[in-house]
Design a protein around this nucleic acid. Structure first.
Lengths: 228, 228
DNA sequence: TCCATAAGTGTTTTTTTTACACTTATGGAT
DNA sequence: ATCCATAAGTGTAAAAAAAACACTTATGGA
């Protein structure tokens, strides 16, 4: 057996990639942006978007690059999810893939760019067949999102800067896939004291209109308490 | 910008390694097994134990191999923690490292093997200076362990098959680094119904002696409820 | 026989979570 | 101008979970 980090014999021939699980929210459902794979193997199936990592590129930078290439968006919140590395996971060769999840606003991405990739949004409960182990990746990312969304304010990344409480609640219901009591939800939200109410209403969803709110990051940072 | 997964230009020159964060429990403190680095760069500092991944080796297998080489232990519970991949994290070249955490019984590892690596146990609140970003890795693993230990029965991996409740409580206190009420702790443990009480006492820690218990995995699997 | 030590055991209070129903503001139809 | 339909907005009570708290018991050794 080898002893110490530097004495391995064979030349390592493993490629390293990042794959991005890109979440969006639309029509009260959590969605995923997938690309139509236009090359072998598994041509025609759907796939996460990924790229190989540059020799001098930080992992996080690679993930951001991939997202930028596809969507034209920058400074998007991303999180590393898990690294997938079964020896035979990619039938085209040995590739280890580090998955990242991102949350973007469907209203803001660059549609031209996206159509260049043959990308399409899918509701998470109506996903097409995915290449390789991308289904595992997606499941892992959804599980993680559901956990994280209860303890950190990441879900706000799926809403525009100004949003209403009914919108926010619908978002949580969509992500968690469960009904939430309106009054309990609002009480919890207001207890944690990081939303600022605007003097402005969104009249597009109801006669009465719903007040708009903003997430105040500085207020959140003070307490860093989040529990929904 | 490149389009599609297969059109990158440069030959990728990134090495892939796993590093293991090996936890043990001793004298009421959570400990970590570290090796004395006997080669440049950063010779003389302490380090996690790691290895490069074999070309045909699953990631998880690589982690298990590393642990086996060092400790002689097999079938040890391991979890992937996070992948570290800043371009300059390792001063000897571009290495992306996938970290795994393991929990072993200090009483069972192979001391000979361990001494061959110049390995040593350190209490987690008295760690030596570590190479590269290994301190970040360790912190991440500890944070994760503290979270996981409340929701899954992984902590039992740090105890022998038969253990007493005072031992179990001391373990939790050591991991979480906080005092726990004895009665509340026992109530919660008994509520989740997966410990079987033996007719046997451990007399080594007190006059009165404490009953021994076993973790029954099948009982746990029934409910899969864990909350401490 | 006594003593020192750690093991073992219930109840009350507080906090958190859940369940639940009516009023209000507005735009559009009559 | 009035009515109506619709979603927004609001408080309280019950239940469950978590936290606080102190004495008795079994034993080995003096």
């Amino acid at each position: 057996m080898t002893v110490g980090l530097r004495k391995h014999k064979e030349i390592q021939q493993i490629k390293l990639a990042v794959d991005c699980i890109i979440f969006g929210f639309n029509d009260n459902r959590l969605e995923l942006l997938l690309i139509h794979r236009g090359f072998e193997p598994e041509i025609g199936k759907w796939s996460l978007i990924g790229e190989f990592i540059g020799n001098d590129e930080d992992l996080d930078d690679a993930a951001n690059r991939v997202l930028y290439d596809l969507s034209g968006l920058q400074n998007i919140y991303m999180e590393q999810v898990k690294t997938f590395g079964k020896a035979n996971r990619d039938s085209s060769g040995r590739v280890v893939s580090i998955t990242y999840s991102a949350m973007i606003l469907k209203s803001e991405y660059n549609e031209e760019q996206v159509s260049k990739y043959n990308a399409k949004w899918f509701s998470i409960d109506d996903l097409p067949e995915l290449v390789f182990d991308h289904k595992d990746m997606v499941e892992m990312a959804i599980m993680r999102l559901r956990r994280r969304v209860r303890n950190t304010p990441i879900a706000f990344n799926l809403l525009p800067p100004k949003f209403t409480l009914p919108q926010l609640q619908a978002l949580y219901e969509g992500i968690l896939d469960e009904a939430i009591d309106k009054r309990n939800f609002r009480r919890k939200i207001f207890q944690m004291d990081f939303l600022v109410k605007l003097d402005e209403k969104d009249m597009s969803e109801s006669r009465k209109g719903a007040y708009l709110y903003q997430f105040d990051k500085a207020l959140y940072e003070k307490e860093q308490y989040f529990n929904l």
